[in-house]
């Protein structure tokens, strides 16, 4: 988890020019860090590449828009990193 978080936080800091110390496991990438949708595409591309995965962003966004899942589950870093770990584990299986 810590490795995933460090990697993701590093990607966000570099891609969005956000000071690394402002990025915590509790940060919500949109509400707290102010990352817009275009910058989030850059972040998603860098995460997909770094972990060799394809984050199902369309599915996540649909679930959040439908209200079936809180956006925190996908867009607070703790939740995002847990989902990345699941995708990496599923790929390795």
């Amino acid at each position: 988890m810590s490795t995933t978080f460090e990697t993701v936080a590093g990607i966000i800091a570099e891609t969005c020019d956000i000071p690394r110390e402002k990025i915590t496991p509790e940060s919500h990438v949109i509400n707290d860090l102010g990352i817009d949708s275009l910058d989030f595409l850059d972040v998603a591309f860098a995460i997909d590449k770094a972990f060799g995965i394809k984050m199902p962003l369309e599915q996540w966004t649909q679930e959040v828009n439908e209200g079936s899942v809180s956006s925190d589950q996908y867009f607070v870093l703790t939740g995002l990193c847990a989902n990345i770990d699941k995708l990496v584990a599923a790929k390795a299986a």
Binding site: L41, A44, F45, K49, K54, M55, L57, E58, T61
Partner: peptide, 8 residues
């Protein structure tokens, strides 16, 4: 890259 909702 073939991303979800985006491509590069």
């Amino acid at each position: 890259h073939d991303g979800s909702g985006y491509a590069v």
